[in-house]
């Protein structure tokens, strides 16, 4: 290799490193300072919203709300991924094929319900707090995961599946060693969409006392305190961006049909 091309490569990798690591790291450091250092946050908010009486939500710390929010998203998304992928696999198997239209219709209908309406229905059944929010978020998150699982598995070349059977893979081995790895990128894209939407949707959980970043946003709206709303919204936006980044990184490791 000539020295010229290797220096081009170095420049390229430096630019990539900046974009893919430095920038996110700087962003994360700024954010951690905002959530965990109250003095720093108050200083910033005073600058942005001068003349307020209160900048810091005094009942629960922002860090605590952030943790609750992460829990809401993590639990509901994990459940949705588990159920969505399992259903997607089931309806693409010979025994489940017949159920594919009905399962897809049901998840589409679930998607059309506003999350608040799901909460309103869940509260009488399960009560206030964390649980009904998990249910609402879970129902709301299934569709993108299910749809992507189905289209990912359907797009696997039948010749490759036949080759798997031909070398002596059992059905479950064909699924685990061939179909899911080939569909993984599309499935991960569904999970990514679902999780990012979920971070925003999870703020409504505050209405039924689920905690999370919605709490400070709702409180800010009630008390007409833009600094509260801003604090909660920034934290939620950061969470959404970082989850998008992390899942994107995982997704990039999977087999990409377009490059072959």
């Amino acid at each position: 290799m000539s020295p010229g091309s290797s220096s081009v490569r170095r420049e390229f990798s430096a630019a990539t490193a900046f974009r893919s690591l430095l920038l996110p790291t700087a962003f994360a450091v700024a954010f951690v300072a905002f959530v965990w250092n109250e003095a720093a946050r108050e200083a910033l908010l005073q600058l942005l919203f001068p003349g307020r009486f209160s900048y810091i939500y005094e009942r629960v710390s922002l860090a605590q709300l952030f943790a609750e929010h992460v829990a809401l998203v993590a639990i509901s998304s994990a459940l949705a991924a588990l159920v969505g992928i399992t259903l997607g696999v089931f309806v693409t198997r010979p025994i489940g094929r017949d159920f594919q239209p009905i399962v897809q219709d049901m998840s589409s209908v679930a998607q059309t319900f506003p999350p608040v309406a799901v909460l309103a229905l869940a509260v009488p059944a399960i009560g206030f707090g964390f649980a009904p929010s998990i249910v609402a978020l879970f129902v709301y998150s299934i569709l993108p995961i299910l749809n992507n699982t189905i289209s990912g598995l359907d797009s696997v070349d039948p010749a490759v599946v036949e080759a798997s059977r031909g070398v002596g893979m059992k059905r479950y081995q064909t699924l685990l060693l061939t179909e899911l790895p080939l569909a993984a990128r599309v499935i991960a894209a569904g999970v990514r969409t679902s999780v990012v939407i979920n971070v925003g949707t999870a703020t409504v959980g505050a209405v039924v006392g689920a905690g999370g970043l919605g709490t400070i946003i709702v409180s800010g709206l009630v008390r007409d305190n833009a600094a509260y709303v801003f604090s909660g919204a920034i934290a939620a936006a950061f969470l959404a961006l970082s989850l998008d980044f992390v899942i994107g990184r995982v997704q990039a490791r999977f087999y990409d049909a377009r490059t072959s």
Binding site: E162, A163, S164, V167, G168, T178, A257
Partner: peptide, 14 residues
Amino acid sequence: GIGYVIQSVGLFPH
């Protein structure tokens, strides 16, 4: 126990 060679896309792309 039987080797199987098929046309074109027999290989696992991933």
